[in-house]
Every structure is written in structure tokens, then in C-alpha cells.
């Protein structure tokens, strides 16, 4: 890898009393969460428990009504998404979002950590960036598709492309929204391996996922959401045995 090794952060993503409601519905209702730096954190919870809204509040896509989001100790509450990305938090989207009418390589060149205006005006044939993009494409295994339009590649390949695109910004923390959603088992395994490798390089992960096998085998720390706030957290084993979690999932 040519990408720089991310320095081990002392503090990572934290939220305090985060709230967001739509109309009368409290999608996020006073969520205080501390994600473990350098670890693979998972965020789970039943459908409609506010995980995606929480995700969107943290990454700036939605402005929270109240509460605080900090990253490495700095306040990033309500900052624009591109500023949060520049601070070192990358994210993927539920249902995979790529730029359909751009080539795979162009898709890769969208995301770059900002290095001033001059850098942006330089040609996209900038050799360093292209080399880095190809390296990452090779790493996820879709380098042979670089000149295809992104809408022409398969869904699984699009998921890999999205992950590789996020890596272009050299994020220290990566938030993935359902990386295993709608993907075949072989690819789930591949994505899991990638996450583990990237984590070993020092990157923190926050993963929202429904696939329990993936969550339990991959994560170091699990946060369980219900009705807009965390109800339990701990190691996968701890969480699995927690009666509150069973109640939230099964409604017992």
C-alpha cells in the first residue's frame, strides 16, 4: 500500500445526547455513544431503530436538532459533509451509491483529501492520484474494469468500487452502512477480509449491519440501538447474551 499509515487516534467518534426528530417521530433520541478508536465497531438494532438517521447526523448529511458530535476531540456537530470527510471520516451509503455515468477510474478520482485549490485545478491525469486509484482498485479486485462506466458493472462490483472510492480520501475512520446488504456470501467474505486488513493498518470502523454472522465474527465492539438510542454495548459475546437486546429484537 502506498497510502499513509493512519496514526493511532486516542479518541475517535463520540456523540453526546444526540437528537433528531421528523415531525413527531424521534428518530434519534438522546444518543450518547463512544466508538472505540482503532477497533471495528458495529452498530446494530431492529429496523427503524434510527441507525441510519444517527449515521447521517454524524456524517453531516442531516443536521441534528440538539446534542454534540466530536471527532478526535474536535466538535464536528452539524458541519457540512465535505468538512467531516476532510477531518478524516469516510462513509459508504446504504444500497450502494456510486456515480453511474462516470467510469470506474473517474469514480475513484472524486474523493481526495483536500490539499488546496491548486491541487483541484490540476488535471485529473495527475499521475500520483491515478496510481493510487489503480492500486486501490487492484486491492479490491476490480482494476480490470477501470474504463467501464460504473452503471455497467455488477452490483457486487459497485459495492467494492464504493469502498475503494472512500479509501481514496485516506480516512482514519470509515463508516459503512450495511456493507453486506444485497451481496452474495462470497463477496461478504471478501469485504470482511478487506475490513480486517484495513483495521490492521490502524483504521477505525463503524459498521451498521443486519447480517449478524458478519457482525459477530468481525467486530470488536458492538453498540445496540433501539428507539433512537443505545440500549446495550460490549463485545459480541456480551451483547448476544444481554436480555435487553433480545427484548429489542424479539419484542419479548
Amino acid at each position: 500500500m502506498t497510502t499513509t499509515q493512519a496514526p493511532p487516534a486516542v479518541r475517535s467518534l463520540e456523540t453526546v445526547e444526540l437528537r433528531k426528530s421528523f415531525g413527531g417521530v424521534h428518530a434519534v433520541d438522546g444518543a450518547t455513544v463512544t466508538f472505540r478508536p482503532g477497533k471495528i465497531n458495529a452498530l446494530i438494532g431492529p429496523n427503524g431503530s434510527g441507525k441510519t438517521t444517527f449515521f447521517n447526523c454524524v456524517t453531516g448529511m442531516i443536521k441534528p436538532d440538539s446534542g454534540e458530535v466530536t471527532y478526535q476531540g474536535a466538535d464536528i456537530t452539524g458541519k457540512a459533509p465535505h468538512r467531516i470527510a476532510a477531518a478524516g471520516v469516510g462513509r459508504s451509503f446504504q444500497l450502494c451509491r456510486i456515480f453511474p455515468r462516470m467510469t470506474v477510474l473517474e469514480n475513484m478520482l472524486v474523493g481526495v483529501r483536500p490539499e488546496g485549490l491548486l491541487h483541484r485545478l490540476r488535471g485529473s491525469r495527475n499521475a500520483d492520484d491515478i496510481a493510487k486509484a489503480r492500486e486501490l482498485l487492484r486491492r479490491v479486485g476490480i482494476d480490470h474494469l477501470e474504463s467501464s462506466e460504473a452503471r455497467d458493472i455488477s452490483y457486487g462490483q459497485q459495492k467494492l468500487l464504493e469502498l475503494a472510492g472512500v479509501l481514496m480520501t485516506d480516512p482514519e475512520t470509515i463508516m459503512l452502512d450495511e456493507p453486506a446488504g444485497g451481496v452474495n456470501p462470497a463477496l461478504i467474505g471478501r469485504i470482511g477480509t478487506l475490513v480486517r486488513e484495513l483495521n490492521a493498518e490502524g483504521r477505525t470502523f463503524v459498521i451498521v449491519e443486519h447480517n449478524m454472522d458478519m457482525v459477530m465474527s468481525l467486530s470488536d465492539h458492538v453498540v445496540v440501538f433501539d428507539r433512537g438510542r443505545p440500549i446495550a454495548e460490549g463485545t459480541p459475546a456480551e451483547v448476544q447474551g444481554d436480555p435487553r437486546v433480545l427484548e429489542a429484537y424479539l419484542g419479548i
Partner: peptide, 9 residues
């Protein structure tokens, strides 16, 4: 949205 999430101002 996606562009902004990738750091494009």
C-alpha cells in the same frame, strides 16, 4: 450527497 461525503466542497 455522495460527492459531498467524499469530500467535494
Amino acid at each position: 450527497d455522495k460527492a459531498q461525503a467524499l469530500g467535494v466542497p
